[in-house]
Amino acid sequence: METLEPKLVQGVTIQGLFDIALKERLSEGAWRALSAGGLDRSRPVRPTYPVATWLRWQNIVLRDLWPDAPLDEAWRRLGHTVMEGLLATVLGRMLGVGARALGPQFALAKLDHAFPGTGNYIRSHVRPVAPCRAELWLSDLNDRPTYYVGVLEAVLLLAGATSPRCTLLCREGDSGTYLLEWSV
């Protein structure tokens, strides 16, 4: 889905990753690079950030935390880490309680409403295909499909799934469809 508005990432995503999940994990060099790239930790998190800035910051994190990991694995780990940070925010803790209480199928159904809360440019659609199995379409992968593998695995784990598996089935332009499978 193409928007005419600039692509923006919500500040809660930035706060969760940098102020919570990575606060003690990044090197001084990475913090300097992030600062030079526009992340001003001396000021409150802004409501939104340009997606291009967010993507540059992600690359700095990858190089710092997982320099020797295969790129796809580093992206997957970053997806998990972003979810770790988001779920530690006030809003994320509330959403996490609901997801755990209601299970994976319900949590996936709510993603259609959750993704726009992290960025104004991303839409999703979940289609259950069998018990413990669903297909999920995402409108914009930002050329980071395995990042979303990590995000989706983290969502399933939060919702009580065991052995979550997330496979990219196909890409069409900027969008992609994933197969999500899990055990309970």
Rank of each mutant, 00 (worst) to 15 (best):
Y121T: 05
L22H: 02
K7V: 05
V184W: 09
M1D: 13
T118K: 00
F106V: 15
T177C: 10
V155N: 04
E28Y: 10
Q10P: 12
Y49P: 02
E172T: 14
D68E: 13
G117M: 15
S42L: 10
F115K: 12
G98L: 14
D143F: 15
R46Y: 00
L152G: 04
T3L: 13
E172P: 02
P50T: 02
A130D: 07
E73P: 04
G160A: 11
R63W: 02
R41N: 10
V51R: 03
P70A: 14
A161H: 03
Q15D: 06
L95I: 08
V51D: 06
N59P: 05
H113Q: 10
L180N: 02
R127W: 13
G150I: 01
A101E: 14
A134N: 08
T118C: 09
L87M: 11
T81Q: 01
C166W: 00
A30R: 09
S139M: 10
S139F: 05
R144A: 04
S42E: 10
L95F: 05
E135I: 03
L71N: 03
R63F: 00
D19G: 11
L34Q: 04
W66L: 07
C166S: 11
L156M: 06
G103M: 12
P128R: 15
D140N: 13
I60N: 12
W31N: 08
M83W: 01
V97L: 15
E2R: 13
N59H: 11
L180S: 05
T89M: 08
A88R: 09
A30Y: 11
S183K: 10
W75K: 01
E84Q: 04
L138S: 07
R41K: 10
Q58C: 09
E5Q: 11
S175W: 06
P70L: 12
E28V: 13
A52F: 03
R46D: 08
L179A: 04
